[in-house]
Design a protein around this nucleic acid. Structure first.
Lengths: 230, 230
DNA sequence: GTCTATAACGAGATAGAC
DNA sequence: GTCTATCTCGTTATAGAC
């Protein structure tokens, strides 16, 4: 009986994975806007109504793909960070950023899903937030570590941004100076600007040696946040 | 005879504009991936084959929309820049950046068309390049002006990036120090990272006072390029 | 020459009866 | 779960109005 349940559970996991794999293939071929439960079912030799036992709607399938993508890049970044956990803040920062870029280049369609245009008619539910935050939390952790080690020189902050900065510290950047929280959020967004421009073709005829350029750019981002140059 | 030609030409311009307007409406509603010539024709009370007199293919219609979007944001930025042409480099930089952000917030779907995920199966032709470059040329011009006025402090540049930097100067940043060219390209990409994150919802529960945050962030971008703080 | 309309193609999606 | 009848799409050929 427990064997039966185990087998059933295993089958369910396998079918769920097969559905997501096929959906990812269609994501690459047609884009998120055209993702259709029917087409996924057809490709898997199932009937469309059978899919609803695994995903209650197309949007739920999309949400699962989005969470998977965030978790995939998040884990890639965490692994890269763990490998240089003993190094200085700047080295750890660069490792995380390069891991994110590497993941994006290897998974362009999943990157487009989470950092490209919104899918018309789809709104991401709150359940995506924890996965979406993983890379950002890594960057915050690096800054916090540098701060505690006295290796962080606080950037300047205009007076009118103080309330916003205090709120950021309170909400998600506890233990950091307010000016660093603001600089960190900006650097976080700017990092994805660099990656998106490379991935979406904006660097054509503009940047040739993209790896070198990126390494230099994220290093400057780190310096802007206040990470010491060691 | 010239009257007839004038009327024909005028009608052609009007119909072309109506097609693009309707296509833009569909862009907003369904996304670029689902833009359909037939739907545009139907909405305009035309027959689909008639559209081919104005656009030889669906991709050509898309290209026209992309060029229009680039020109729209480019002109907005140029007008904003002209209004502060006498101000210092930092003020001009901020004006251009804020104009781009304002345009993006006012035209989110057109922004997504040019800076969001690539449209599956579509490759932008070279004809989009001049329009796409307008904002970047504005930023280059500001840096050049600052440099000539002695108001630009050169950022640092690692030795291994020198060849790339020299190439950039040669290709599109003539008259600028190589280190500035590299910093400028990075800042240009990072600017769009800030705008995309705001527009695509990544700043939810992260940045509240977005206008203030943005102003501060682009100011820091300018300082990173080397523009003097006046 | 310039335009629009009709009809058709091959491919694919979709709704509903069974 | 299957099948079919009816939609959609981009695109082309053709014929006729202005």
């Amino acid at each position: 009986m427990s064997t039966t349940q185990g087998a059933r559970a295993r089958a369910r996991i396998e079918v769920t994975a097969a559905i997501k794999d096929e959906a990812r293939r269609q994501l690459a071929a047609e884009g998120a806007a055209k993702l259709s439960l029917r087409a996924v079912a057809r490709e898997l030799g199932m009937v469309s109504s059978a899919l609803y036992r695994y995903f209650p709607s197309r949007d739920d399938l999309l949400t699962a793909l989005i969470i998977d993508a965030y978790d995939s890049v998040g884990e890639t970044a965490e692994v890269a960070h763990a490998k240089v956990a003993d190094a200085g803040p700047l080295r750890r920062w660069t490792s995380v950023c390069e891991a994110v870029r590497g993941w994006a280049l290897a998974h362009p369609h999943e990157y487009a899903l989470i950092h490209g245009s919104p899918v018309p008619g789809y709104v991401a539910p709150e359940t995506t937030v924890p996965s979406a935050a993983r890379v950002a939390l890594l960057l915050i952790g690096i800054a916090r570590g540098a701060h505690q080690a006295g290796m962080l020189t606080e950037p300047s902050l205009p007076a009118d941004l103080h309330p916003e900065a205090e709120r950021m510290v309170e909400d998600f950047a506890g233990g950091l100076p307010p000016a660093v929280a603001v600089a960190l959020v900006a650097a976080w967004a700017e990092l994805y600007g660099l990656i998106s421009f490379e991935l979406f073709g904006q660097f054509r005829r503009v940047v040739e040696d993209r790896e070198l350029f990126f390494r230099h750019a994220v290093r400057r981002l780190a310096l802007g946040v206040g990470l010491a140059d060691v």
